[in-house]
Design a protein around this nucleic acid. Sequence first.
DNA 1: TTCAGCTCCTGAACGC
DNA 2: TGCGTTCAGGAGCTGA
Length: 306
Amino acid sequence: MPELPEVEVVRAGLEPAVRNARIAAVSVLDDRALTRHSGDGADFEAELTGRLLRGAVRRGKFLWLPLAPLGEDFPSTRAILGHLGMSGQLLLRTAGAPPERHERIRIDVEHPEHGELALVFADQRTFGSLAIDDLIPTSDAAPAGRGSPEPLVPGQVAHIARDPLDPAFDDEAFRRRLARKDSAIKRVLLDQTVASGIGNIYADEALWAARIHPERLARDLSTRAVRRLIAEVRAVFEKALAEGGTSFDAQYVNVNGQAGYFAHSLNVYGRTGQPCPRCGGPIVRVSFTNRSSHFCPRCQRARGVQ
DNA sequence: TTCAGCTCCTGAACGC
DNA sequence: TGCGTTCAGGAGCTGA
């Protein structure tokens, strides 16, 4: 389940392979992988073939590969926008490599240093997708995300908040936003328009680390608690990044198909009934906002929960 | 305007 | 062995 650390691992892996690479051919094998694209597979293939890629950029869980402008006659800047959804993978393969399981789209590129490569988008559950989107100026004129100094963001990503690892993330604005939220903090953390990149796994882990019950109302959190929470979100992200992300099965791998190791460092997620690493009490799992929520009822008191 | 719940989807795991 | 059910969850949509 790719969240910010997993997507960042993928972005960092793609960056050297796609920067200044020319797209030689595109094959859309399943149009369901283009749910965010305004055209069809043929349109996707036609627009990309022959174009030059500029790099790989990420905001939250969204990833995009900016395309070089076509010239003065076509100055509009576009990008290949991707979201991995639940089970999406972006894999780098040698040219002509056999099809991957659940392969949906293949982009063959020619890189000036690395030669011919295949960028494969595979996705089991088809929640992920690729699209071609216009790049528009960021509302705060700051760089759009990690991987590029350009203040240009895909239109479909413009409403997504910055992620907590972004230097332009505004901690105080985040606190003010929470203070107006009459909703459970777990739900607010999963709202990508408040802070991006946080999914179910890291929300549970950060709330446990900050000793905050997932069903506490966001507006009831003290300034100190919010600061502690955002610090723990960053700490969890940084640790997961250092360990290559969280892999429970083959559904998250880096661009080379390798799993991450952070699943071994999880304190509450997926540990129902096991002792809390902090107090020894049993971790519980509850169904919450159509998700599973894992927490320690002893460490994370239900004070103020409605 | 805000909030909560539903929907999409596939395959592994499980029970019978 | 085969069939049916449950579960996992990101993001957009809809209704209250």
